[in-house]
Amino acid sequence: MKRSKYRLPLSQRIYLIAILKGMGITARHFFTNLLRPGRMPNVGYPEKRRNYSPRFRGLQILTVKPNGEIRCTACMLCATACPADCIHITAAEHPNPEVEKFPKEFNIDMLRCVFCGMCEEACPVDAIRMGTRYELANFERNQFIYTKDDLMRAGNYTQSRVTRP
């Protein structure tokens, strides 16, 4: 087997130079952040929060009609479309014959939800929308099942669901 005649030049054989180059990059970042903190890509959460676009997919909201009743007609298209199988609906007869069908129960298991937005796309009557709330951490597993009332109020941020043990 022939041996390669090529040899690295001295400047590259001396490892120290490579080390210094690397440290230079680190130093450059260090001083940039030190002297011009506004250019850091970090967001100082929780004091500052990122601004998300209006299309951001967070916790679902169940919309209401002008008379305050839920708009959803329990057609179950969202439950069918959901890839995570996290929506569970029980339909019931509505006392108003013009409405006829409405959901008695509408539960979303947020531990399963992947926030894909398929439910919002599937809904034919614009009854479910992906809202903007994403701070959903909790201590109890059963607190992650959001019921119909929770989802109807989900637009209201001041409601906190955290229950400390």
Binding site: T73, A74, C75, L77, K101, P124, V125
Partner: peptide
């Protein structure tokens, strides 16, 4: 009526 109809 498809959303509320059982025959869907």
């Amino acid at each position: 009526d498809c959303p509320i109809c059982d025959k869907a």
